[in-house]
Amino acid sequence: MPQSGPQYSQQKTVETFSPDWLLMAIVLCLFIFVSVVLPAAFSIREPSGGNYYVENACLIEFNLTGKNLLQYNLKLDVSITNPNKKCHVYYQQLQASASYEGEIIASALLPTFRLEHKKTVVIHPAFGGQSAIGLDDLSVNEFMKQRSDGFFRINVEINAKMIESLGLLTTDEFSASIWCGLTIPLLPSNSSASGNGGFTRTECEVKTLI
C-alpha cells in the first residue's frame, strides 16, 4: 500500500492595505496640493505685467521740414523687472512705437527673451529716419516752442505678448500695453551721442492687460 506523504494545501496570499496607511497617503497628497500646487496656481492666476522704466533717452535729431516731414534719431534704454518671487516670464513678442502730437512716427520690433523671477533686463528701442507727419499750425507752433525750450514731449508705447510659468504650470498668452510719456532733451549737435542731456528716469504705465 503506497505511503502517502504530508499534504500541503496551496493558498493565495491576498495583500491588504491598512486603512491607516490609506488615510496617511490621502493626507500627504492633500498637504502637497495645498502647500505647493494651489499656491503656484494662484501665483500665476493673474499675470503681473512687470515694472517698466525708461532709464535713458538720447534724442540726437528731431527736425521738422515744413509741416509734414519729421527727421528723428532717438535711442532708449528701457528696464523691465519681473517682481514675481516664483514665476518666470516669457516675452514672445515685443514692439515699440514712438509718437509725437498724437501721430506715430516710427515702430521697431525688439528681441524676445525669458525673464526669470526677481530679475531685470534692459532693452534698447531705437528709432531713426524720417516720417511724414500732419501738423496743424497750432502743433507747429508747439514744436517750435519745445525746440526753443530744448526738449520734446514724445510718447513711447511698448506692446508685449507673454506667458508666465512656474514649473509645469503656465498661463495663457496675454498682452500688455506699456505707455511711457517722455520729456526728452534735444542733444546739441556737438555733444556725445552716449549722453542723455539731463534726461530724468521715467516710470512707464501698464495701460492694458488682457
Rank of each mutant, 00 (worst) to 15 (best):
N155Q: 12
T120I: 03
Y8L: 03
G49P: 08
D136I: 05
E116N: 08
K161T: 10
E164L: 01
V121T: 15
T13W: 07
K161I: 09
L59V: 07
A41P: 04
K67T: 09
L169K: 06
I44A: 05
N56L: 10
I184A: 08
S177C: 07
A193R: 11
Y52H: 15
P47S: 12
Y91Q: 07
P188N: 04
Q95S: 09
N51Q: 13
F17L: 09
D20Q: 10
F62V: 12
A25D: 05
S4Y: 09
M144W: 08
L38A: 11
D172V: 05
S9G: 04
S131V: 02
V34F: 03
R201T: 06
V34R: 00
K75Q: 13
N56D: 13
E157I: 14
N84D: 15
G198T: 11
S148F: 11
N141V: 01
K86I: 09
R114Q: 13
N51H: 10
G102T: 09
G198I: 12
Q95R: 11
N196Q: 13
E46L: 04
C180R: 06
I154G: 02
V37G: 00
S48P: 01
M144N: 15
Q130N: 11
L30R: 06
K75S: 15
T120H: 03
G134A: 15
G198H: 12
S131R: 06
I163R: 13
E103L: 14
I44C: 04
I158L: 14
L182R: 03
Y72T: 05
V122T: 15
L187I: 10
G129V: 14
S97F: 08
S43E: 11
I80P: 04
C58L: 04
Q3T: 11
M1Y: 13
S107V: 08
F152Q: 07
L69E: 10
F33L: 14
A106P: 07
E173A: 05
E205P: 02
Y53R: 15
L187K: 08
S99V: 12
G66D: 03
L23S: 14
A193V: 09
G181P: 13
I133T: 06
N63P: 00
D137L: 04
V89I: 15
A40G: 13
R201F: 00
E101N: 03
N159F: 13
K85R: 12
H124I: 00
K12P: 00
W179P: 00
Q10K: 13
M162S: 15
I44D: 02
L168P: 09
V34S: 10
E142S: 11
S9H: 04
L70D: 02
C180L: 07
N141L: 12
S148W: 07
L70N: 02
